[in-house]
C-alpha cells in the first residue's frame, strides 16, 4: 500500500466535489488504480465550507484502500477559501522532496497567507484567471485539474482529457480543454522555477 493523500477545501459551489471526482475517475477508471473519494455531505456542500478528499493507492499490488479518508500529512492540499486557510499548518503537509504541495487560490484568499510561505506552495489567482480568460469561474476547476495532472503525474494527459470529456457538457468541452492546458502550462512553469530554486 502506497497511499497518496489529497484534500481540497473551499466553499460550496466552487466545484470542489466535481474536481475530486475527476481526480478519482482519472486515477481509478483510466489508470486502474485503487481510489476512494469522500466528500462533504449536507448543507455545507451547497454553500458554506465544503471539502472533498481522495486517497489513491499507487501500489498496483494492493487489494483495497484501508482507511477511506485522507490521512495527515497530505501529499496535496488545495485551499480555495479564506476560511480554509486555518487548516494550513506546517505539519499537515508532507516534507519529502518528491511530494507534499499546497495549492491555493490567491484571488479568493484575500488576507495574508503566512502559513503558505513555510512550505512548498503554488499560489495562483485561479478564479480570477478563469473569469478573465474563459468567462466563468467554473473553469477554475479544469485549470486546477491541469495543474494536478502535471504536479502529481499520477495519470497521463490522455486520461485527463478522457476524464474531462466524461464530466463537462459537450458544448463547453473545447473551452475546458483550453483551461486544462492553461493549468498544465502554469504548473510546468512552477516546476521549472522550483527546480531552478533548488539548483
Amino acid at each position: 500500500m502506497n497511499r497518496y493523500e489529497i484534500r481540497i477545501v473551499g466553499y460550496g459551489g466552487q466545484g470542489i466535489i466535481t474536481l475530486s471526482k475527476m481526480i478519482a475517475y482519472a486515477s481509478g477508471i483510466c489508470e486502474e488504480l485503487l481510489v476512494t473519494q469522500t466528500e462533504a455531505y449536507g448543507a455545507q456542500a451547497r454553500g458554506g465550507r465544503s471539502w472533498a478528499e481522495v486517497v489513491i493507492d499507487l501500489d498496483r499490488e494492493s487489494k483495497q484502500i484501508d482507511y477511506p479518508k485522507a490521512l495527515k500529512p497530505y501529499d496535496l492540499l488545495v485551499i480555495l477559501s479564506d476560511a480554509a486557510t486555518k487548516e494550513v499548518k506546517k505539519e499537515v503537509i508532507k516534507k519529502e522532496e518528491n511530494t507534499g504541495l499546497l495549492i491555493w487560490d490567491s484571488s479568493t484568499i484575500l488576507g495574508k497567507f503566512r502559513a503558505a510561505s513555510k512550505m512548498k506552495n503554488l499560489g495562483l489567482p485561479i478564479q480570477k484567471m478563469a473569469l478573465e480568460k474563459f468567462g466563468d469561474t467554473v473553469y477554475g476547476n479544469t485549470i486546477l485539474f491541469g495543474i494536478f495532472t502535471v504536479v502529481t503525474k499520477i495519470f497521463s494527459e490522455e486520461s485527463a482529457i478522457e476524464t474531462i470529456k466524461q464530466f463537462v457538457p459537450s458544448s463547453t468541452l473545447e473551452k475546458n480543454i483550453e483551461a486544462f492546458k492553461f493549468g498544465k502550462q502554469k504548473a510546468e512553469e512552477f516546476l521549472t522555477q522550483l527546480k531552478e530554486g533548488m539548483s
Binding site: G28, L34, V35, Q37, T38, P68
Partner: peptide, 10 residues
C-alpha cells in the same frame, strides 16, 4: 451508513 453511502469508489 451516511458515510459509506456517499463514498465514491471503483
Amino acid at each position: 451508513d451516511a458515510y459509506l453511502g456517499h463514498i465514491h469508489e471503483v
